[in-house]
């Protein structure tokens, strides 16, 4: 395996002896690929994402991201890994309500040791790119769902992560906002960002990913779409490749 993300025989049990949330899952995501992970509720989609992000630890198997074994890292090193290698986008945004939009975006950069001015400049750049620079000094509570998700995306990108992980990124926003968010993700992938999206929406998966992995009962039951060779943008980056 030579992908950016490599899972090998990964199992996750939340209760000993119970039904595993993931059962000997192996998969690989190449650099620049956009992969959608689909499945019904309880299939293990979010668990998979959490393991890649280091938010949780597998009961068995290995998880490697950008050449680093994530499953063996301690809490501190996992946190440092998340700062620089992973950008997380959650369904319910998970912004810090007491920080302004700019403060939220700057946070991972500041934790990574970036100076205040540089972090602020980077945040300004990202917010402008995402079209929400005018909300820089606003609190998240005053924004719409779509706007909050854009803030979350900006935060996820601030340290130029190797991988962007999105867990139901459009699940808590309206249709129009969801489309806009989806297009944003497409654009990011087209620019070379490796993307893993968890969704239960087949239309979303078809539109924004070039490969769909389906899970059921913790196992990969199918994969559709072409795998992209390492280093090349996926079909999502080619005009007209999507309906």
């Amino acid at each position: 395996m030579t992908g950016v993300i490599e899972l090998s025989g990964v199992t996750k049990n939340y209760t000993p002896g119970g039904v595993p949330a993931l059962d000997r899952v192996s998969l690989e995501v190449a650099a620049g690929e956009a992969v959608a992970v689909m499945g019904p509720s309880g299939s293990g989609k979010s668990t998979l994402l959490n393991l890649i992000a280091g938010l949780d630890r597998p009961s068995g198997g290995t998880v490697t991201v950008a050449g680093q074994r994530v499953d063996t890292l301690g809490e501190t090193r996992t946190a440092r890994y998340r700062r620089t290698q992973v950008g997380m986008i959650f369904q319910f945004f998970n912004l810090v309500e007491d920080l302004t939009v700019a403060g939220n975006v700057m946070l991972p950069a500041r934790l990574a040791g970036v100076g205040r001015r540089a972090a602020r400049a980077r945040a300004k750049e990202l917010l402008a790119r995402l079209g929400i620079d005018r909300y820089r000094d606003t609190y998240p509570g005053r924004l719409s769902g779509g706007e909050r998700q854009r803030v979350a995306i900006a935060r996820a990108l601030v340290n130029n992560p190797a991988v962007l992980l999105a867990d139901e990124p459009t699940g808590a926003v309206d249709t129009a906002a969801g489309r806009a968010i989806g297009q944003l993700l497409v654009d990011l992938n087209a620019a070379g960002q490796t993307l893993v999206i968890v969704t239960h929406n087949p239309e979303l998966a078809e539109r924004y990913a070039n490969r769909v992995i389906r899970l059921a009962d913790g196992r990969v039951i199918s994969e559709t779409g072409a795998a992209v060779p390492t280093g090349q943008p996926g079909p999502a980056g080619q005009p007209g490749a999507r309906p």
Binding site: E75, A79, R80, M88, N94, V96, E97, L107, L111, R155
Partner: peptide, 15 residues
């Protein structure tokens, strides 16, 4: 919840 977010974006437990 904020604690979880801080840790998710890279704050270490000692921090």
């Amino acid at each position: 919840h904020d604690l979880g977010v801080f840790k998710a974006v890279g704050m270490t437990p000692p921090q």
